[in-house]
Nucleic acid binder design. Structure first.
Lengths: 132, 132
DNA sequence: ACATGTGTACTATGTCACACCATACACATG
DNA sequence: CATGTGTATGGTGTGACATAGTACACATGT
């Protein structure tokens, strides 16, 4: 069985949404290094998407270093996703700046954002359901 | 003179980048409620973009409630951007979740992200240059 | 040896966002 | 009346996205 679910939203590329769901599963430990990743055809059947679109999902995760491919066998979760200093600063600048601007536009307080950050962080620490 | 600058990045829509730069200027107080917003043709000339693209910029800011239009006169910065509860939860869930997933992928600590959040927050509080 | 399942590679079609060009109109101000 | 504003309308080109279909090299099962 495929260890993650997706509820498709309009306006966002399908392959991106599936890749993000998979990334969440990996990051949160539901898929661990060495675990087999669902095949292109399995993803295609499960999410009712074209095999080419499913292939784009694994391709995206491959580019990010989250998966490794065993030719003829399939893809497995990579041992240790590498990260460069450039990637870190890119994330910490562009993405957080966007978040701050949006939060200030909505007149949120820093405490509100910080609390939400803590909540989501611990939510992805262990595979337990968060309270609403 | 136009009170904000843009360094265009490939892969991101032009109108979105200009709108984000303007939003930053408004949120950080460099453009205050009642101030006149650059005209479509001024934006077009300044950033070397098509008038239609420039018009899409003001249209996007208009939809977000950051601008108001005086017919025949131009657009001015709106008095008080409204924010619905739906907008807040959308931001605090989808956008922060994305940030957390990316941060965990890059093996960053919560402290790192939290520190970057504080830094960007105060950076947009007053129009002073942040130290690098 | 053979069938099966895997990743991967092509070609092709259709839709849509994006950015451009150009023109035109209604409005308010000088 | 001319000028500058926002707004609307056509058209063109490029690229991403998702689809369909076909094909190949590889490894593993029997």
């Amino acid at each position: 069985m495929i260890p993650f679910r997706v509820v498709f939203q309009p306006g966002v590329p399908l392959y991106e949404q599936v890749a993000f769901a998979a990334k969440k599963a990996i990051v949160s430990g539901q898929l661990r290094p060495g675990d087999p990743f669902p095949s292109v055809r399995a993803l295609s059947a499960e999410f009712k998407i074209n095999p080419n679109t499913a292939h784009k999902v694994t391709g995206a995760l491959l580019d990010e270093g989250l998966l490794e491919v065993r030719p003829g066998l399939g893809a497995v979760v990579a041992d240790r996703p590498v990260s460069t200093a450039a990637e870190r600063t890119r994330l910490l600048n562009r993405e957080i700046e966007q978040l701050v601007v949006e939060a200030k536009r909505l007149r949120l307080s820093l405490d509100d954002v910080s609390a939400a950050l803590d909540r989501h962080w611990s939510k992805l620490d262990s595979p337990q359901e968060a309270k609403r």
